[in-house]
């Protein structure tokens, strides 16, 4: 079954190296992600979480399989269509915030929007609003060195929220953070899904995020071994 609005991965496989020593990072993974849901991809280190995220988000082409979004295969025209998908529909939060050391919190959001061609006035409004959304309005003039790790990660999230993506892909977003900050970000994600109707796909081994999500998918050695819906707190 294929929904028009969701994200649908069909038979994704990815391997590195050659047989007989090839590593099967992904082994025929099929899954469907409903719109406006917060999905966590759980698994031990090396289980293929990041590879799944990369294939589904248009960052790295799978060796086999398709990824459908709004009825189209995002890899149909290789990197070109994948880049268009990322531009039109995706946001990314990585373990490291990847903020420009020279920009203030507000500029971290404003500058990428401008680079994406968003109108100056609109970009201003969206930057201010996104910073407010993550509770950092008071620190809009702060440089990354003047903020804590958790605050910087929230700036990185705000930068993506301002882009208003249909899907936010996160890879280990809280792994470098303490429990309080991890919880704050869990709540923030939950809020984003509820308020904005965005979808979040979050690869992590950090179980502290589980209470906030709608669904937990577990990978082991590149295979999907567990898929459980749950009621978030």
């Amino acid at each position: 079954m294929r929904t028009e609005t969701g994200l649908h991965a069909i038979g994704l496989s990815k391997w590195f190296g050659r047989e007989p020593n090839a590593v099967r990072a992904l082994d025929d993974v099929t899954l469907e992600i409903a719109p406006a849901s917060f999905v966590i991809v759980l698994g031990a280190s090396g289980s293929g979480k990041s590879c799944l995220l990369a294939a589904m988000s248009g960052l790295q082409r799978p060796d086999r399989g398709e990824v459908h979004f709004q009825g189209r295969d995002i890899w149909a025209r290789g990197n070109q269509s994948a880049a268009a998908f990322r531009r039109d529909a995706c946001g990314f939060v990585f373990q490291s915030p990847g903020l420009f050391p020279s920009l203030t919190a507000w500029q971290q959001i404003y500058v990428p929007l401008r680079q994406l061609g968003v109108d100056r006035q609109v970009a201003r409004l969206r930057a201010t609003e996104a910073l407010d959304h993550v509770g950092l309005s008071a620190r809009e003039g702060a440089l990354p060195t003047q903020l804590s790790g958790g605050q910087n990660q929230r700036v990185a999230i705000a930068r993506m929220l301002a882009k208003q993506p249909a899907i936010l892909f996160c890879d280990e977003p809280t792994s470098a953070l303490d429990t309080d900050n991890a919880r704050l970000i869990g709540e923030l994600f939950q809020h984003v899904v509820r308020q904005r109707g965005a979808t979040i796909v979050c690869a992590t081994h950090d179980e502290r995020l589980i209470p906030f999500c709608d669904r937990v998918i577990t990978l082991q050695a590149g295979s999907l071994i567990h898929d459980q819906l749950q009621d978030p707190a």
């Binding site: 880049a83 990322r86 946001g91 990314f92 990585f94 990847g98 420009f100 990428p112 680079q115």
Partner: peptide, 9 residues
Amino acid sequence: ELATLVAIG
């Protein structure tokens, strides 16, 4: 930082 910009298109 620049790669992050590439990621979002």
